[in-house]
Amino acid sequence: MDLASARAALAAASRVAVLTGAGVSAESGIPTFRDAQSGHWARFRPEDLASPAAYERDPELVWDWYAGRYRDVLAAQPNGAHRLLAELERQKGAGFFLATQNVDGLHGRAGSGQGGGQLVELHGNLVSARDEHTGEVVPLPDPDTLVTPPTSPRGHRMRPNVVWFGEYLPEEALNAAQAAFAAAEVALIIGTSGVVYPAAGLAFETLEGGGTVIEINPDATELTPYMSFSLRDVASRGLAALL
């Protein structure tokens, strides 16, 4: 498949599923999880900051880390890739499904999930927290007024609303993503390394259903050998070429 064929397939498709990873937000200045561990945080392993055991051992330390990341994502702005995906959703309507591994909330701020399709944040969202007792999800206050660990309206301590190492993805979100990718005529895999499962397995749901899977990534990934077509570019330019 060449670019013209990929563009034609996407234009003709009524059911489109998209998976995005850290590469989409990189153009907004959002570092990946590991890249963000600079300065003081460089001495911590990911498991020291993003696991149930770490949180149980030192919730203040974990919240200090996430409060800093929360401030960073609020300061960032959606980029061209986020906006193009929101526009693609408006074109496809109810046939559009976007699953993201990112926790920065930039897709929603760009308009995804508001154009007739569906947005699912597989790994949660940094701008909210979850009541440890009830599971209720509550938006975090402004970073300047955030007191950590935060307390829910019911008076319970809240944890970051993200999926940690050793935790399962939300079942409802994963089931919705698997169904959407299985039914998709075209799937886009954008800015993700393809090594984190089960999200990386979504591409195969589309392939097994006879659909076309298009990858946009500046580098080859573990999924590349299986793709119908791969665009070697950053997310915004790759999407612009495809659309």
Rank of each mutant, 00 (worst) to 15 (best):
G211A: 00
D219Q: 11
P218V: 06
A235C: 13
V195D: 08
V196Q: 15
E208V: 10
D233Q: 13
A199R: 02
P225E: 05
L231Y: 05
G210R: 03
A220Q: 11
G210L: 06
A235W: 02
T224G: 02
Y226G: 07
V234D: 01
M227L: 15
D233G: 14
E205W: 00
N217H: 13
M227Q: 10
T206H: 12
V196D: 10
L207T: 04
A200L: 10
L202W: 05
G209S: 12
L231T: 02
L223C: 13
L223R: 09
E208N: 14
E208S: 09
M227E: 02
G211N: 02
A199F: 04
E205S: 11
V195G: 05
G211D: 01
E215L: 06
A220H: 04
I216D: 10
T221K: 03
I214T: 15
Y226A: 14
I214A: 12
M227R: 04
P198G: 03
T224Y: 04
V213D: 02
S228Q: 12
E215W: 07
L207F: 08
G211H: 00
A200V: 11
V213Q: 03
A200F: 10
F229D: 05
P225A: 03
G209V: 10
Y226S: 09
E222K: 07
V196T: 13
V213S: 04
A235V: 04
V196G: 12
I216K: 13
M227N: 05
S230R: 06
S230Q: 13
E208R: 14
G210P: 04
L202N: 06
G201A: 15
E205H: 08
A235G: 08
P225N: 07
D219M: 13
N217R: 04
V234N: 03
T221H: 01
Y226E: 07
V196I: 12
T206L: 09
Y197K: 02
P225H: 08
V234W: 00
E208D: 15
A235R: 00
P225M: 01
D219I: 11
Y226N: 03
